[in-house]
Amino acid sequence: MQPNFSMNFSPQALIFDLNGTMIDDMHFHAKAWYQILNDDLNAALTWDEVKVQMYGKNGEVLDRIFGKGRFSEAEVLELSVEKERRYQKEYFPHLKLLPGLADFLDNARQAGIKMAIGSAAIPFNIDFVLDNLNIRPYFQAIVSADDVTDSKPDPETFLKAAELLGLAPSACVVFEDAPKGVEAAQNAGMACVVLTTAHEKEDFGKYTNILRFVKDYTDSFLQEILPVRV
């Protein structure tokens, strides 16, 4: 079941998850986690098990796998930084926006749409993407893992982004690639566009806030949700 939005629905703000939504990098995150969890911490997880567990804050990933309290705050920080260092080193030669996103960001800005980042990534990773791709000026607000108490599917990330933009949740459309992110948007009362970079449509069957599934930002639907410039 789809939400009851008409085709001329035009949001006042767009909130983007980052990894897997603006860039296609989830394979590299999974590879870094696989190495940390198995080679360094002897978790003996399969590739598929790692992919299922790697959502939310890095400390939450470790808690889910090893149990809460296994690592000190200092150890969590050290493991987190090392995981991101490995991810960035592997991914940097491949770093680029998803097809069509550069033009979409330009068109949204010209149409007067506010934009924000709402990600479970730490600032170290958000800065890595925004600054290496020179896209920071597009965003009026950035909400990272460090800015919230509760990770997705809790709505705090997206609600805080809307608050920073000065808009009601109903005025925002979220771009996500993961079921937990779509659930967070639904919990925030926000419509969502899903990028199918990491998950199949079947993984999102229980959510009712999805406007459209798109492969990338060349999909013509994305131009339809922007207001017509006069």
Results as ranks from 00 to 15, higher is better:
173 V>L: 10
141 A>W: 11
166 G>D: 13
204 F>R: 03
192 C>G: 07
172 C>T: 06
211 L>T: 07
50 V>P: 08
53 Q>W: 13
86 R>A: 00
208 T>D: 14
97 L>V: 09
171 A>K: 14
16 F>Y: 04
138 Y>H: 07
167 L>M: 11
148 V>R: 06
145 A>T: 04
104 F>R: 04
147 D>V: 01
108 A>M: 08
226 L>M: 09
210 I>Y: 11
172 C>W: 03
20 G>Q: 06
60 E>D: 10
46 T>Q: 00
25 D>E: 07
150 D>S: 09
31 K>I: 15
79 L>K: 13
42 N>H: 11
24 D>G: 01
146 D>F: 09
154 D>H: 12
87 Y>N: 01
38 N>C: 14
225 I>T: 03
194 V>M: 07
188 A>K: 06
153 P>K: 10
149 T>W: 04
123 P>Q: 08
151 S>C: 11
207 Y>L: 12
33 W>N: 06
37 L>K: 10
147 D>M: 09
115 M>L: 09
223 Q>H: 10
45 L>W: 02
172 C>F: 14
216 D>Q: 01
97 L>W: 02
40 D>H: 09
190 M>I: 15
131 D>T: 13
7 M>N: 13
188 A>T: 01
83 K>L: 10
114 K>T: 01
64 R>W: 12
130 L>H: 09
78 E>W: 02
88 Q>Y: 07
58 N>W: 11
90 E>S: 15
67 G>F: 12
177 D>F: 05
108 A>F: 04
146 D>I: 05
43 A>G: 07
224 E>A: 08
117 I>Q: 07
186 Q>T: 03
84 E>R: 06
199 H>Q: 07
228 V>C: 13
104 F>H: 04
230 V>N: 11
141 A>T: 04
223 Q>L: 03
171 A>Q: 12
133 L>G: 05
2 Q>L: 15
211 L>K: 09
214 V>K: 08
56 G>T: 13
77 L>W: 13
158 F>M: 02
197 T>S: 06
83 K>A: 02
229 R>N: 06
88 Q>I: 05
23 I>C: 00
79 L>I: 08
229 R>I: 15
24 D>T: 00
189 G>E: 15
221 F>W: 12
212 R>H: 13
111 A>S: 10
119 S>A: 12
6 S>H: 13
159 L>T: 01
66 F>E: 08
59 G>H: 15
15 I>F: 05
20 G>T: 11
81 V>K: 15
64 R>Y: 07
54 M>L: 15
2 Q>R: 09
5 F>S: 14
64 R>D: 01
227 P>A: 00
103 D>E: 10
55 Y>W: 12
168 A>W: 02
134 N>Q: 15
93 P>G: 10
97 L>E: 10
19 N>I: 01
146 D>L: 09
69 G>S: 00
214 V>T: 06
84 E>K: 06
226 L>R: 01
136 R>T: 02
121 A>Y: 03
127 D>P: 03
179 P>S: 05
76 V>H: 02
73 E>I: 02
154 D>S: 04
60 E>G: 13
166 G>W: 11
5 F>Q: 15
